[in-house]
Design a protein around this nucleic acid. Sequence first.
DNA 1: GTCTATATCGTGATAGAC
DNA 2: GTCTATCACGATATAGAC
Lengths: 191, 191
Amino acid sequence: MTTAVPAEDTRTRLLGTALRLFAEHGVEGTSLQMIADALGVTKAAVYYHFKTKAEITESVAEPGIRELDLLVVEAARHRRRGAQVDHLLDGFVDLVVRHRVLVALFSSDPGINRAIAKSAHGMEGFKDALIGILAGPEPDVTARVTAMVALTGVAMAGGSPDLAELDDETLRHELIDVGRRLLGRPRRHHD
Amino acid sequence: MTTAVPAEDTRTRLLGTALRLFAEHGVEGTSLQMIADALGVTKAAVYYHFKTKAEITESVAEPGIRELDLLVVEAARHRRRGAQVDHLLDGFVDLVVRHRVLVALFSSDPGINRAIAKSAHGMEGFKDALIGILAGPEPDVTARVTAMVALTGVAMAGGSPDLAELDDETLRHELIDVGRRLLGRPRRHHD
DNA sequence: GTCTATATCGTGATAGAC
DNA sequence: GTCTATCACGATATAGAC
């Protein structure tokens, strides 16, 4: 019953090379032809696995989206709001740092923003949920603006080539620090 | 000597309609054909005024880039660093708020980022100059990260549709406020 | 100096053979 | 699953009318 290598093998390879090419030439700078060539197949073969190019970019980004999704759920489970914010910020920064390349890539891709807006699975905007946790219930304008600045700032700075030289630990530490300052969370003593 | 209507008239009209269409369908969602049709001319006519589509998007964004450029120069003229930061932050927020639509549009356009990176006229990256002023001379990592988060956060939040409901004055006030908090500038008393 | 007509070529996408 | 057409459309280019 060794049903052999899963049929998804090609699909997975495809996503791998796609990511590599995206990182190298940008999303819009990567054609289906390039992906096909890199895989040694034809464009049409690529189309067998993905109906559209957007579907490829979304699939490449999906692991990150999933993590983010899960993070929001987890964070929301805390009873105290402070713990919610802490959990969310820590997790978000960690996610951004680990997926730096992805973040940089897709922050400048029109398609991905659409995907994030409508969220991964179909449930409406978990981006609102993110902001909701950071800004608190019934937030005033200041809280909302602060939450947005914190979230977008951390993401953009984390993905920026200007900070690419920093190792993960340093970047993570700095981003959490600036995030906590912004959101009014107490300073942490770091070793 | 009424040398008549400048030849740039069409060029200007073109940039106007281009901006309108960009705002409506996004940059990549707007073809040269659409622009040509909206103007009542042919694609080739458009191509006469601009050698490439990228040139159009850059020209549309240029006024903003110029302002930003000027702002950096002005800010750098202050002797005290505090005054430099204040000037830059005020000006930057004002610019973002006034050009909200542009900011939203081009923050997700790969082409514009390239344009900003290499700067308008040819002098290399004034983005570095921006960060340089905010982070100060010989900045440590924390200062650099903070400056980046502040700059990108303000820009993204300012251009975000999520805050589009806010009127200019409110948004400006809130962004300056959060910016000052981040950059460690003293609170201002607002009326 | 401003535009039209027209052609080229790459790209995303589809239909159908193997 | 993969390939061979084949499509429409986009950006880009050139030749030439006015």
